[in-house]
Amino acid sequence: MIKITDGKIGYKETLLYIGQLEIAVGTLTALIGKNGSGKSTFLKSLCGVIPTLGGNFTIENKAIGSITESELSRMIAFVGSTQVAIPYLSVTEYVLLGRSPYTGLLGRYHHTDFVAAEGAIELFNLSEKKDRGLTELSDGERQLAAFARAFAQDTPVILMDEPTAFLDYGNKRTLLSILKKASQLSHKSVIISTHDLDLCVEEEIGIMGIDSRQNQMKHYPQGTTKEILLKEFF
């Protein structure tokens, strides 16, 4: 559960004000807004890459600023907007890296780590490709592997910065529905930033919008029509 009250975020100057926001577990929430409205900044602030500028940000009742790196890595998993294509890194090795927060000083994986990685790989239908190198996958598969890594990290919260940007229409759709199912099944709060407004409405995903005229974030219930959203945010 993420709770924000009176939150201010941005680089030095406040870019975005969040009066009151709660994100429940087991939901997939899409974050929409214009380019430059602060979607990435919001996600990066939540996972501590950028310090927040004021207000209360809590995850599981702990203030974000007070959480140590290693604690945070067990609470939030992050998928960036750039594709990870590292030579010689196989899907399994990549997904196992998501287990780093749970390994000891020498980084040895235990049985539970292999089980978690295997489960995440299955969840995203990558079992047949698990020994392939990341560079040998298609853009869509590579993105699925990134999701699997985040899910293997076994955190209550997963943040994704434009995870569907590289994908074709069909893959976008499949990915969103897989993500929605996965977040419900594993009781996670998944927040993705995206420009695919139509798909989010179609897949009935909860929507948070950034109103860039007032620099505020608003939560919209499922089923809000595209027309209202478009009017409000673009």
Binding site: E69, V84, T103, L106
Partner: peptide, 24 residues
């Protein structure tokens, strides 16, 4: 160097990602 294996493995993903995996 044995104590560096874990951070080295995470670091192939880039510094930001490694840090989000709990690496100092």
């Amino acid at each position: 160097c044995l104590f560096l294996i874990k951070p080295l493995n995470a670091l192939v993903l880039g510094e930001d990602h490694a840090s989000l995996l709990g690496i100092n």
